[in-house]
Nucleic acid binder design. Structure first.
Lengths: 331, 331
DNA sequence: AGATCAAATGGGAACGTTCCCAACGGGAGG
DNA sequence: CCTCCCGTTGGGAACGTTCCCATTTGATCT
């Protein structure tokens, strides 16, 4: 079907080498030649074959963006979208394309895992398989890990300051006069959980408040779970006057429970979220939250990945992106 | 770096052909051979090279999911995520990977557009360039168009019944006793606009209601625009008692305006959206909306695309997925 | 006019697979 | 014991590029 560079060469009278150059480095070919070559190409419906090019160049100009299958619908997760978007933008600037895949390990017949496509680099976000990362690195494929830390040598991990973010959220509630502060902890990766939970506990202790175990609920990070958990908190004899939710979706669920109980936000119960995902501006009142700069995360991950692809050695192996408290109307 | 099939062959004493078969069709190789081959492969860190395979097989096992750049942040758009997810799932079932790209045309040096990667098929969603679709088809690459209709011969277009959906929404409001019904029309593609707009108008006419031009606002399909437009509607002397929004995000914005005006939903103003995106369940009260089965759209598109890839001729060239009214608390 | 040099072009060998065809070996059947 | 056949195995030719190296061309300089 597809005509090849040789067909074009024959038709226009130049060699395949020259035709190749007319596409790969047009400046090195005379105008006259280019004219003829492009005309021939057009009449033959020729377009360069990226696979063949990748074959000889030993680079595909593709990277993969890998998300955790278990966190699926993860693409849907408002958390990942802005990151992916940044990755796509940065990749496009460099003429790279991006595969989006789940981290479903692929088993070879011999039982080895491997990632079934050729690519120049991989960004993992969230939970990631150590096996497959190891495998990739055996193949000398650069890897960047996002929103997660894995204890592998020379592995670049980019995360955000979950701990500090949680502290700032609780401090904020304290400053607004709240003393009975609940925690709805949606569980993501153990690391993230722990950091955000610890931030909550430490912030309270530092203010001299005691931890009320009844105020702490460990739940799925979903809207439904947030709503359910909040309902339970509201039924307590001494209900909390403020609740810190470890993501925005949970916070939105919590808000529902409050509103349905006929209470006002923030007058009766203040709510604060985490992530500053798109959800935070959809709800009414708009959600006070701890902002993670997703765009920066995506951008940084891509930049660093390309540094690695180009063989630029990296100095730091852990990058922490600071969070920022965004005060809106829910607190 | 990477060791090749030949290295493995040398090491284990079998031919490259047999090694190849040990991966591609394990059943045709004796147990003894496989054992030796896999052992050799493991010690050499060998993994099959997908590019080389694609080269000779003349198929990449990749498809592309192309979204409109102008609708970016489109990945973020809660509308696209579930579709992409279905596409990924269906592709993974067939051992295919998916590129996610924007429909930014790529210009060859000769001024021709082309899509810069090799792939077995492409799904366009939303606005799509006729030029690039034409180009792809010259290369015999199957194309499916989602949520849009382009008048090209033998081009499979999958859409939803925007018109009927709009009618059912307005009918629903009418049945609930509303007579003053507004329209917030976020503009997407002209087709979608027109269909939903026409549905609104026709439904009203059929009920014998007259069209009040003041009740119709043509706006950007964003939260902000929805809020602003709704505020204006509320300022009218005779404000509408119900508003049909042509997507959920606009509806969420409209809800904000109503709540901030101190009015109740649905008692004072009923709101109805379109899409049944994730937004519809985040807002409080939850949004009555016209459901589009995104999962089915994505699934169907992928199935049809694979039919085309496998050379199965298709009978129908237009598929319309029915919408369904989902009544929740906002109406 | 001859020498020199840069710009433009061409030929052939990779790149790492799969696939076609051929060959080999051993067990079953006559 | 010979033949046939099937299960395995191997050799070589693709697949469509790029890149190295060599050659040609034409212009500039002395």
């Amino acid at each position: 079907m597809g005509s090849t560079i040789i067909d074009v060469a024959k038709k226009c009278g130049y060699s395949k080498t020259t035709v190749s150059r007319a596409y790969a480095e047009p400046d090195s070919v005379s105008e006259k030649a280019k004219l003829k070559i492009y005309a021939a190409a057009k009449s033959l419906n020729y377009a360069p074959n990226a696979i063949a090019r990748a074959m000889v160049r030993q680079r595909t100009e593709n990277i993969a963006f890998v998300i955790n299958e278990k966190q699926s619908p993860a693409v849907l997760n408002p958390f990942y979208s802005p990151i992916l978007e940044a990755v796509m933008r940065e990749s496009a600037r460099r003429n790279y394309s991006v595969f989006v895949m789940t981290n479903q390990d692929v088993l070879l017949p011999n039982g080895e895992v491997y990632i079934k496509k050729q690519m120049d680099g991989v960004i993992f976000v969230g939970e990631a398989s150590e096996t497959i990362i190891g495998r990739l690195r055996e193949q000398k494929i650069p890897v960047v890990l996002l929103n997660n830390v894995l204890d592998m040598p020379r592995l670049l991990c980019i995360t955000t300051s979950h701990y500090e973010g949680a502290v700032s959220a609780v401090d904020h509630l304290y400053e607004r006069g709240h003393r009975k502060i609940g925690l709805l902890a949606g569980h993501f990766s153990p690391q993230v959980n722990e950091a955000r939970y610890k931030g909550y506990v430490d912030a309270l202790s530092r203010q001299g408040l005691e931890i009320n175990i009844q105020y702490i609920l460990d739940i799925e990070p979903t809207l439904e779970a947030g709503k359910g958990a909040m309902s339970r908190l509201l039924e307590l004899e001494e209900r909390p006057t403020a609740v810190f939710c470890t993501n925005d979706t949970v916070a939105a669920g919590a808000m529902k429970a409050v509103i349905r109980a006929g209470l006002r936000i923030p007058e009766d119960v203040a709510i604060i979220g985490f992530d500053d995902s798109s959800v935070s501006r959809v709800v009414e009142p708009e959600l006070t939250t701890v902002r993670i700069d997703m765009d920066q995360m995506g951008r940084l991950a891509t930049e660093k990945l390309f540094d690695l692809i180009e063989g630029i050695p990296f100095t730091e192996t852990r990058i922490v992106i600071p969070t920022e408290l965004v005060v809106r109307s829910s607190s």
